[in-house]
Simulated assay, not measured.
Amino acid sequence: MSEATNAAVGVRVDGHVLIVSIQRPQVRNAVNMAVAQGIAAAMEELDANPALHIGVLTGSGGTFCAGMDLKAFAYEGVEPAIEGRGFAGLCEAPPRKPLIAAVEGHAVAGGFEIVLACDMVVAARGASFGLPEAKRGIVASSGGLMRLPQRLSANLAMEMALLGDPISAEQAHAWGLVNRLVEPGQALAAALVLARAIDANAPLAVAASKQIVQGSRNWSDAEMFERQRPIARAVNGSADAREGAAAFAQKRVARWRGC
């Protein structure tokens, strides 16, 4: 296991899993430029390093993220966005590989938009999610208003966006926004269990499956199979595909090579 940090963001590798933690608990992990730079660098490493198959993003000190650091913005005048990646170095360009949010405490405003940029969510009981921007006279412009209707019904997404009130982790789980609901303090551990279970599958197939699930939202019925075909063909013709079939036939654990 290796570890690295830029003071605002901690990064460590556990097997094939990249664990990224926002390290500003004194301000409820609010995002400043250092956080955005740290997350952006971690996402670039996740996608570029073939030894990494999946990421987990969390916060420190019992909370996930309270959004943008408004004090830092007021004094420094710099919005914590990275060119090409957007707010928090993530919201406009999530990684190609799967990313799980492990949520304790608050995930509100930009913090909730970070969660929505992830592919799956593990949350502790007592955590809360929300887009309070309408209460402050602004718009949640880092993807929250566009991604929320992809996760919830249009009516529920509209209610959250217009009312601005937070919802509990229990409600988010009931609505299908949270994949797994766990006891307080267990979100990261449970997210790692989920990550390792996914990591047991073929990395090429996992990455391609994410690509198809996400991309197909914008594919018409007429074009969807044509759009899927080259992605699936590249994986189904791989050495890992042959290994998967052989391992099944021989009743053994597959040895994935990522090619």
Rank of each mutant, 00 (worst) to 15 (best):
G62A: 09
P203N: 07
T63F: 09
A109R: 04
I100T: 06
M160V: 10
V193R: 10
W219N: 07
M158G: 10
G258S: 09
A174W: 01
R252K: 13
A93K: 15
A200W: 01
A241N: 07
I114L: 10
A232R: 10
A234H: 11
T63A: 08
G77V: 01
V13K: 14
N29Q: 03
Q23T: 11
A169C: 12
A195S: 09
A123R: 09
G244I: 00
Q211S: 15
I39M: 07
H16R: 13
G67N: 08
K97L: 02
E243R: 14
Q150G: 01
N218G: 02
N32H: 13
P132T: 04
S153D: 14
I22V: 15
C259V: 07
H16D: 15
V31E: 05
L177R: 04
P80F: 02
A7W: 09
M33K: 10
L192M: 15
A81T: 12
H16W: 00
G77L: 06
C259G: 09
G176A: 08
A51I: 00
I82L: 06
Q250H: 11
P95F: 05
L57C: 05
R147L: 15
A42P: 09
Q26M: 08
V103M: 06
A161W: 00
A81G: 05
F87Q: 02
A161H: 08
A8D: 15
P230D: 11
A205M: 14
E113L: 00
W219L: 05
L18N: 06
A117T: 00
E113M: 01
E3I: 05
P50R: 06
G67R: 04
V103N: 08
R85T: 00
G105K: 03
L131N: 04
Q211M: 12
A249N: 14
L70S: 11
A42Q: 07
G144Y: 00
D47Y: 02
R85K: 14
C118R: 05
V213D: 09
